[in-house]
Design a protein around this nucleic acid. Structure first.
Lengths: 351, 351
DNA sequence: GTGAAAGCGCTAACAC
DNA sequence: GTGTTAGCGCTTTCAC
């Protein structure tokens, strides 16, 4: 039902190549015929078919952006910055979510392959081997991952995690629990490394706990483990985990920061709105999104550089209210505090 | 550099159509040649070019999902549900963000047009005329918008807003401030209507304030207006606005709910983590996402139905801790409380 | 400045 | 079951 280039050509008695030029290289066509074509096109509601165009030119003017979990507030600033940057260069960004599943992630790159001019892989969950392999098949920039020969935007979370541990040590904490994240995540390895080194340097005992899901639920689920570990402070893989933990501790009658200190990582928007406000390691996600798009576009326009670009952005510790000196006695749950997360929900709904 | 269908055909001495069939209609080709083709394909790293395929078939097996602001936690559950539903039917979802800009929104639909089999327009900001026009050009399902002849998934936020006002009235509030949202939003019109009707019915005076951005910043910016309005309670266009307002009121020394009650709309995940926990109107966003994809796929597979489907989902008031009876005296800001949002940030960063 | 012709990578009748 | 042919909508040499 949509008008094609031929309809427009017929409508104003020119060859299709003239119509084509009017849209892709207007300067090559006589101004008067150009306006005639444009008018006919408008009358018919014609728009060049981007799929057909892509088939001949090999260019789509789309970029793909793949993230592990779009519901994690960590990603939106990165996404929006990437989109803004791309839009400025007349590219569109297609965002997709892998649900933290490496298989889905790999599948998505392949699915996007010919439909975009390049892909930004945000915090990949696939293994390095796969990243390198994918990079051979299409322009690829990776965020928070080091892979051989693959352009990358890195955020120095190791330092940030280290600063967090030092901050806790300075308060006098001697036992810190570390709530790990996805094992496929470069980010997580760096958190562990950075925290570990700082712990060693400051003589703090680091209790590394099994990773749960990197979500509020994961954080809530870890509450008892944290208490049992005997730690007086916890460093969480991300703010969501920290917030979930903090909330669950509240239910258990453990006060933050009086009984237990908590540090998150990411500095998502809401961390500033909770009570207590969350102490956290701020990640420069917007800058990372912008930069990833810049690198990708350079890759697309100019081909692979002789030297693979790699940018590392600084993180910084933001001290708010969820950290304090350790209590005299180790924290314990107050028996009798119910732990139902949605108790308030069932009772009051209209109709 | 990527292998084409011809490379595979040559590699195993068959015609390209046989290769084509092995991928799009395997049952039509002899099992033995099929495995030969498959092996050659694997050896060459061949994958059918989805763009080329789309050009002939007219089908991409992609869906577009356009949202006003991906950073608004209202959308992710809808997005994830839509993706899950689509994935189950082997479709991919491309998400894009309009930045609340109607012009970008319209442009995005056109850009997506031939690259997807249909689009879900989540909470459109464009005018109805435009929605109807777009619907004529490609399969389209709209969320939270009624437009002539356009399939829609609606959430009955009017009722929810009404329930919120009734809840406040029952507590004894007589003056309620209403913080409106984007004027292009059907949702906002319904909030206003629902709240207005309930206010009338319960004898509550509704103070409708100028809409700010539907974000935390917008809510914070409205704090003084709310106080000046003389209201003892506020209903916000969404949870983000409510949370921003609540936080700013805290800075001004106004206590929630003791001095002022607040009700949000959406029930985003974090509304359960703030102190006080936010009373809000829960929106069934995940169900809406699922349903929108179902409708769209039906539209794509079966063509337009004789009768345009329209589903309306219920909303429900979730009473938490941000509402209470009005104070004896009207709330006033405590002079001397500074209102710097990021004051804590500048001071403590490592290096 | 414009037309003619070839072809991007694939599918879909239609023969055989 | 497989090969042949035409063509999806567009761009891009190459002539004129």
């Amino acid at each position: 039902v949509a008008a094609t280039i031929r309809d427009v050509a017929d409508a104003c008695g020119v060859h299709i190549s003239t119509v084509s030029r009017t849209f892709s290289a207007p300067r090559l066509v006589n101004p008067s015929t150009r306006t005639r074509v444009l008018e006919a096109a408008r009358g018919l509601g014609y728009r060049p078919n981007r799929v057909a165009r892509a088939l001949t030119t090999g260019r789509t003017f789309n970029l793909g952006l793949i993230v592990a979990d779009i519901a994690n507030p960590y990603f939106p600033p990165l996404i929006k910055a990437a989109e803004a940057q791309a839009r400025q260069r007349s590219y569109h960004v297609f965002v997709t979510d892998t649900d933290e599943d490496p298989v889905v992630e790999e599948d998505l790159v392949h699915a996007l392959a010919k439909q975009v001019d390049g892909v930004v892989l945000g915090s990949p969950r696939v293994r390095n081997r796969v990243v390198e392999e994918l990079h051979r098949q299409l322009p690829l920039v990776v965020v928070n991952r080091r892979a051989e020969g693959v352009p990358a935007v890195l955020m120095d979370v190791g330092r940030g995690a280290g600063a967090a541990v030092e901050h806790l040590a300075a308060y006098g904490h001697r036992h810190v629990a570390l709530l790990g994240g996805p094992s496929g995540s470069w980010n997580n390895r760096n958190v562990c490394r950075g925290a570990g080194e700082a712990a060693e340097a400051t003589g703090v005992a680091l209790h590394v706990l099994e990773p749960n899901a990197p979500t509020e639920e994961g954080g809530a689920a870890a509450a008892l483990d944290v208490l049992e570990s005997g730690a007086t402070a916890a460093l969480a893989y991300n703010d969501l985990v920290a917030l979930g933990l903090m909330d669950e501790l509240g239910r258990l009658g453990v006060r933050v920061p009086d009984d237990l200190s908590i540090v998150g990582i990411d500095d998502i928007a809401v961390s500033r709105l909770t009570r207590p406000r969350l102490t956290t390691v701020a990640m420069p996600t917007a800058a990372a999104g912008r930069m990833a798009v810049d690198m990708l576009l350079q890759l697309v326009d100019a081909g692979p550089e002789p030297t693979t670009p790699r940018a590392t952005l600084d993180t910084s510790l933001v001290v708010r209210e969820s950290t304090a000196p350790p209590p005299r006695r180790r924290p314990e749950p107050t028996p009798g505090s119910p732990s139902r997360r949605d108790g308030e929900r069932a009772a009051h709904t209209h109709r």
